[in-house]
Simulated scan of single mutants.
Amino acid sequence: MGYFSVATSDADDLHAVEPHAAGVSSRLNWLRAGVLGANDGIVSAAGLVVGVAAATPELGPILTAGVAGLVAGAVSMALGEYVSVSTQRDTERVLLAKERRELEEAPEAELAELAAMYQAKGLRAETAQRVAEELTEYDAFAAHIDIELGIDPNELANPWQAAIASAISFTLGALLPLIAILLPPVSARIPVTFAAVLIALALTGTISARLGGARKSRAILRVVLGGAIAMVVTFAVGQFVGGIGY
């Protein structure tokens, strides 16, 4: 009797925990996307303003290039995310509709398919058939989309939410190098921007490593080195262009 009461309690606990775990996973995915968007904004804007600053000491061109790059990048990120997530959402809706139609038109075939999938996962044929029958009786549609598609129809991605989040994260990231290059005196603009950008990239690398469970040193080195290379290249291009007559 004690075994069954414990088993029931555990099942209830798992039922209560799973939605929470799914919500945490979803929030972590959005946070990771935000960190990546901010990282993209930092590197893109830094490369742009450093390149222009290497060509001219005038604030006007630097500010214009920085703001234009920020706006263009934010819009590009938003549009890209909107198109990508919309395509994903449309595809998921088509798959869900197809699965629902198949269940209505050929329920027996779908039941056999469900049992076969559970058997392929390691259950004995009799157990797989019983599991398939019980799940079908409870909610056939939910059972099929879970094991076949891995889609939760109540948590389909929102393209507008993705677009706005990407635009905001890119903008916040791009603001840092823009501010860093505008505030110091002319002689310190590029060194200050380099330092600020590399520190910010080290921070985003640390956050992304923690979210992904990866080694911090490798993640930090990757983003810092990439950002440094981008700024060095655009600095060299700016000096070359400025040297032939900006």
Rank of each mutant, 00 (worst) to 15 (best):
G2D: 13
G2R: 14
G2V: 12
G2S: 15
Y3C: 13
F4I: 13
V6D: 15
A7C: 07
A7L: 15
S9P: 11
D12W: 09
D12V: 13
L14Y: 09
A16R: 14
V17M: 15
H20W: 11
S26H: 14
S26V: 08
R27V: 09
W30Y: 11
L31I: 11
R32G: 11
A33L: 12
L36P: 04
G41N: 07
I42W: 02
A45Q: 12
L48N: 00
V49I: 12
G51W: 02
A54V: 11
P57C: 05
L59Y: 03
G60Q: 10
P61T: 13
I62P: 02
L63N: 01
L63K: 00
A68M: 04
G73I: 00
A74M: 06
A78S: 08
S84G: 12
V85I: 13
T87V: 13
Q88T: 14
R89N: 06
R89D: 03
D90L: 06
L96P: 07
K98R: 13
K98G: 04
E102K: 06
E102Y: 04
E105K: 14
A106L: 10
P107R: 08
E108P: 00
A109F: 07
L114S: 03
Y118E: 09
K121D: 12
K121R: 15
G122L: 08
G122W: 05
R124S: 13
E126T: 10
A128Y: 05
A132T: 11
T136N: 15
E137T: 14
F141Q: 15
A142W: 08
I145E: 12
I145M: 04
E148I: 00
P153S: 09
P153K: 08
P153V: 00
N154I: 06
A157I: 07
N158M: 02
P159N: 09
A162R: 09
A163I: 11
I168K: 01
T171P: 01
A174P: 02
A180Y: 06
V186S: 14
S187A: 12
S187G: 08
R189Q: 12
P191M: 01
F194C: 10
L201G: 08
A202E: 06
T204P: 09
I207R: 05
S208V: 10
R210S: 07
G213L: 07
G213V: 09
A214T: 14
R215Q: 12
K216E: 09
K216S: 08
R218L: 09
I220W: 06
G226M: 00
G227D: 01
A228Y: 03
I229Y: 05
A230G: 03
M231N: 01
V233R: 04
T234C: 07
V237C: 01
G238Y: 10
F240E: 06
F240Q: 05
V241R: 05
